[in-house]
């Protein structure tokens, strides 16, 4: 589904990611793990087109590395970004509508919004409230729902557990697991390595802008030392 080859990411003169390659197969959930500053968010930004990069980023074989941000989303990439970035001045419902801004079919959009309100009754109750009034966990759910409103082929999740209470983190991971079981292709960026690997089919360990290790959750979980060294969480 998503194939990344020799990706370098730059922030001005600084190179944050030094030539990584990774791929996410259709229907897979792949975890990209690593400590702060490893280059995880830089990688996500490069895939979305908001950071300068070189290398190839191919979605279903089509190279998107020269495409605009908007065209990448339109060809099937959706992101729930780091920090969630909910439109706090707009209602919950308006956030979802903007998420579906690229879809012309109004009726299906309305149906999808209704489905989300069923999945997350709390969002339904607060549909007219400004997004900024939601709690962190609710905002994360909204950010994921907003991303999925575009009916993407692949969902990029950047640190969905960041800043949330442990109980809420568990809910978020349940939600991601459910999406995966429904067939969604997911690239999950996390510091919370143990939980992320539990719901992933494959994982990459990123440190200092390079992939240090990759493998199935069993492989990666087996090398406890490396996990501890790279994530600080064991």
């Amino acid at each position: 589904m998503l194939d990344i080859r020799d990706l370098h990411v730059f922030h001005g003169p600084i190179e944050a990611v030094h030539g990584i390659s990774l791929s996410v197969g259709a229907g897979q959930c792949v975890a990209l793990l690593g400590p702060n500053g490893a280059g995880k968010t830089s990688t996500i930004s490069a895939i979305c087109g908001v950071a300068q990069s070189s290398g190839t980023i191919a979605l279903e074989g089509a190279d998107l590395s020269k495409a605009s941000v908007e065209d990448r989303v339109r060809s099937g990439i959706a992101v729930s970004p780091e920090g969630r970035r909910i439109f706090s001045n707009l209602s919950v419902e308006a956030n979802l509508r903007i998420g579906a801004g690229v879809r012309p079919d109004r009726e299906n959009v309305a149906r999808d919004i209704a489905n989300w309100f069923e999945t997350f009754p709390i969002l339904g109750e607060r549909r007219t409230q400004p997004g900024g009034t939601l709690s962190g966990g609710e905002q994360q759910m909204l950010a994921i729902a907003r991303a999925l409103m575009s009916r993407p082929k692949i969902l990029l999740l950047d640190e969905p557990s960041l800043g949330l209470a442990p109980r809420i983190v568990a809910q978020v991971f349940q939600m991601i697991d459910r999406l995966r079981s429904e067939g969604m292709t997911i690239l999950l960026v996390e510091q919370n390595a143990r939980q992320a690997l539990k719901i992933s089919d494959y994982g990459y360990l990123l440190n200092n802008g390079r992939i240090q290790a990759e493998g199935t959750p069993a492989d990666l979980g087996g090398s406890k030392d490396m996990m501890a060294k790279l994530t600080g969480l064991g």
Partner: peptide, 23 residues
């Protein structure tokens, strides 16, 4: 939707682009 996007853009334009709405 375009009107909502304009209001959203006043807060976070990059995020609006990340939903695929053309800047």
């Amino acid at each position: 939707t375009l009107g909502l996007a304009m209001r959203a853009a006043s807060l976070d334009f990059e995020m609006v682009r990340l939903t695929g709405i053309r800047a």
